[in-house]
Amino acid sequence: MTIDFKNLPKQELFGQGNVGCKGCGAAIAGRQAMKVLGERTIITIPASCMATLGGNNTKTTWKTPFYHTLFECAPAISSGVRAALEIQGIKDVNVVSWGGDAGSADIGFQSLTGAAERQEHIIHVLYDNEMYMNTGGQTGSQTPLYAITSNGALGKKVHKKNMLAIMEAHGIDYVASANIAYPEDLMNKFKKAASKKGFSYIHILAPCHRGWGIKPEETIEVARKAVECGMWELFEVDEGKRTRTYEPSFIPVADYLKAQGRFKNLTAEQTAELQKSVNKYYGKGE
């Protein structure tokens, strides 16, 4: 880790006094991103934990303008905000839509794919807790295989939808995956995305200790294990050029899965099957 802590902005644009659970992964992701995006940022948030985290009534934790959009249209509203800024000739503002996995991959997907297709000059962030956590942890398209959720006691039967590949296929300027346990990597990716003139998409894995069945203090540890075992790849696609930004150490996937309550019913065969598919993906044999 080589973060220049001396030059890191001291100002807390988001996070202090947020009303999230203790050990909230989404709040960590937001804080790390806002250190890079800075004061000149306009945020739009669809219905998600992030929307409630900001506070209510006259109390807010955001120190930048933020707009709580309807569930399905955060990137569309960001597009409008950008158009309004352009017509006024304001050029130094980052427009960011910050959705959860439902607000980006499921309900919000139509406006996301529309904005990506139009190559709007915005950043879309998907903070991924792999469940619909704001409504009590239901199964969504980003829930991984075999994970137990509040409405799926037997575990999910199908694979997680590969949002990164879908967004890469749009041919947008910048696609990246990030993880809250690697702040340097995450902040570099936000820096790059902010410098682009077109659409950028960043997918952050942000564990939710309530839904994942872990202790609050293990949030960072489990996020790190997801990368180290190879199940969450850290990479970026910068104008078509794909690079892996972090080489994992390949701990057994069982270390990552067994740490979580949502995988407690996983059999030895299922773990071996997941290990096999990870090995195959990284070209390490069967």
């Binding site: 890191l8 996070g15 947020n18 999230g20 050990g23 992964g25 709040a27 804080r31 702040p183």
Partner: peptide
């Protein structure tokens, strides 16, 4: 100092 970025509350 990495804990300043890992703390969810900026505390």
């Amino acid at each position: 100092p990495i804990v300043t970025l890992y703390c969810p509350d900026g505390a």
